[in-house]
Design a protein around this nucleic acid. Structure first.
Lengths: 228, 228
DNA sequence: AAGAGAAACTCTGTCGACAGATTAGCTGTA
DNA sequence: TACAGCTAATCTGTCGACAGAGTTTCTCTT
């Protein structure tokens, strides 16, 4: 059932396990985190658990207040907007750098990924959406890596992308997915041309349009909920 | 001697205290962090200390490896370049947003800060450099706040600015400081004009030129050191 | 019956102690 | 004298336990 992280310490394993649990929704947004309960669930003591929780706090996945305990962070439209504003500039930077720094092998791999993405989109018109989400994340992940900027890579891959998964919805139709794929192709094209400015521009446009898609999905999704 | 953080938990206090200790150089870059030693120095047990260390790890101020302990992060020219590349885009974004969102009061306060900065630069030609560094950080801090983007504010004020202090040098002369002040005035001017694009451009230029200054200072500073 | 107050319970924050791993130092040999 | 191997000391990772703060529940009063 649960994959075993073979990472050294218990605190490290817990950190990854809890991250995944939150991002998969197993720990619901806004849910209170009881240290005794979680410690028993994962068969560890509260020591390593608390260490993992302090890291999750820095990653903005949980909110802690002294003597009151921790809660899973609650996604808000405002935070979604914040994330996308930051993401637009950072991914723009990554694409710009990637245009000059990406090796031919990396470019080929990226193109392969896009082709696979397209095939999956055609094959299963309403099939496994997991693979499609993975394909999208893979595209952005590769470009971030290609920037060769350690801080940028870390901010995108370890902070922003996980946060975004909190907002991921399953109800975007295939026409929207087609648009996203077309935008990926445009970015890829700019990268193949080794055109930094065009790569930056197409990427920023792609993120901006993804923001619109995500925001709409969030609104239609939260029609059934009320406010605090 | 040591300011007393009145924040709730010991782990929280330790987190801030250790952050300051690292940024002031009291804990030297590359120095090994001994949990028993630190725990005794601050009069706490290892529990809260370890929780603070895990947060510092996420903030990139220390590096931990399993069963080997933690070390204060060592500044490298590559990381300095990474920070400035990210900072340029993020502060550009902050300035762009601030141009439309900043209230008149906030603008007046920012202008006040710049005037005070200028006075201090004239008064003490070779005086207290602390106040000058504070004035510079204050300028960027205010603009970040004005963006009203929580994630952006947090990334800049709590992650990038602290990291940058690891590279701060005391040997930049007053001619360089004059240039920085002139650039601040240009940004301020664009903000007063409510011109987002100009604000973004002038800020990005300012950061780029600060990068050059800082990199030069780092090179001249590290002439006396050797590599590992 | 509704609300204020007190008591009991639960939880978080903190500490001291043990076990495995790592490092430093010592011994013996080539 | 230099180096390999072993031993001892130290440190990190983990656990269980205690104390104060917070929450819930029950009771007593109006």
């Amino acid at each position: 059932m649960s994959d075993v992280d073979a990472s050294g310490t218990l605190a490290e394993q817990l950190f990854h396990t809890l991250t995944e649990a939150i991002l998969r929704g197993e720990l619901a947004p806004g849910a209170k985190i009881s240290e005794p309960v979680l410690a028993q669930r994962y068969g560890v003591s509260r020591g390593p658990l608390r260490e993992a929780l302090h890291r999750l706090q820095e990653r903005r996945l949980i909110v802690r207040s002294a003597n009151h305990g921790a809660r899973v962070v609650e996604p808000t439209p405002q935070m979604l907007a914040s994330i996308f504003a930051v993401r637009e500039t950072l991914e723009g930077l990554a694409a710009k750098e990637a245009a000059t720094l990406m090796s031919d092998d990396e470019l080929a791999a990226l193109a392969d990924g896009v082709r696979r993405h397209e095939r999956e989109l055609q094959d299963s018109e309403a099939g496994r959406h997991n693979a499609l989400g993975k394909a999208d994340e893979d595209f952005h992940f590769r470009i971030a890596q290609a920037s060769q900027n350690p801080l940028l890579i870390d901010l995108l891959c370890n902070q922003l992308y996980p946060l975004l998964r909190l907002y991921r919805s399953r109800n975007d139709n295939s026409s929207l997915r087609q648009r996203a794929l077309a935008e990926h192709k445009r970015v890829l094209s700019a990268l193949c041309d080794r055109d930094p400015e065009m790569a930056e521009l197409t990427m920023k446009r792609h993120i901006a349009s993804a923001k619109v898609r995500r925001t709409m999905a969030l609104q239609t999704c939260s029609l059934s909920k009320s406010e605090t």
